[in-house]
Amino acid sequence: MLLVSSVAIQAYRDLSKPGAWDFWRETYVAASMNSAVISDVDIDGSGRGRRALAISGTIGSASASWFRDRLSEARLAPGDAVLLSSQGGALNQAAIMGEVIRTHGLVTAVATSDASGKLRPSACASACVLIYAGGQTRYGIAGSRLGVHRFTTSAPVSDPLAEAQRIQGMVLGYMTKMGVSSGIVEAMSQTSDIRWLSPKEALALNLVTKPIDRP
């Protein structure tokens, strides 16, 4: 009885931490993102098919761990693709997911795909853009959209200005590491609403590294 009680008390304390319930729910009940493995996707029209993991949904507080598991199951090789379709979510989780993509040598594209591997344009906004930036090559699919905005935190902080500067510094450091122009942070800072980058802007910022004319 004492052992059970001590475990229950520790579990309660753990779940009392900010965001812990969301993490627990996503880990053990229902993930906030969905995935599908596509065995043969021709992203650039070269006729070279590649394996892809398509992910969609909200980036939650446990999405990085979920993503690692899905990658392991998908057995992607360097040069294979991650297809993205998301309106954003947790910034720190997105950065980790982007790092994982880069470590594995994967490419990224904003798109969905049917079972046959035919691509459809999609949207990737807010924190999703950080995942996209992790691609070794970042394909720009015709008709797909990349949206940015100023990042803020909903958690209570003693110094909001310092926290905003910390977040901006983190995003700048991450994007620079991924080879994206520092101008992306200026584009983000211009509005708290989603600002959809034109294909020309995304290319100029080196966010898109390989534009593809066909969807």
Rank of each mutant, 00 (worst) to 15 (best):
V208R: 00
G179E: 06
V185G: 06
D159G: 05
A164F: 03
V107T: 13
G105F: 13
F151A: 15
V110W: 09
G169D: 11
S72A: 05
L119R: 06
R75M: 02
L172V: 03
S182L: 07
D40N: 09
V129R: 15
K210L: 07
S56Q: 15
D114K: 09
I43F: 14
I9L: 14
K177F: 11
A155H: 12
M170I: 15
D159S: 11
A30F: 03
K17C: 00
V157G: 09
R120L: 03
N206W: 06
K210T: 05
V7L: 14
I9C: 07
G169H: 04
P18H: 13
G134F: 08
G183C: 07
Q93I: 01
L84H: 05
L71F: 08
S16W: 09
R120D: 13
C128P: 03
R48P: 00
Q165M: 06
W24C: 01
P78K: 11
E186P: 00
H149S: 06
L83M: 05
D42V: 14
G60S: 10
D42M: 12
L161A: 15
T108E: 08
D14G: 06
T176P: 02
D42P: 00
A162S: 10
R13W: 07
T137S: 07
N34P: 01
V157Q: 12
W196K: 01
D159K: 02
R214K: 07
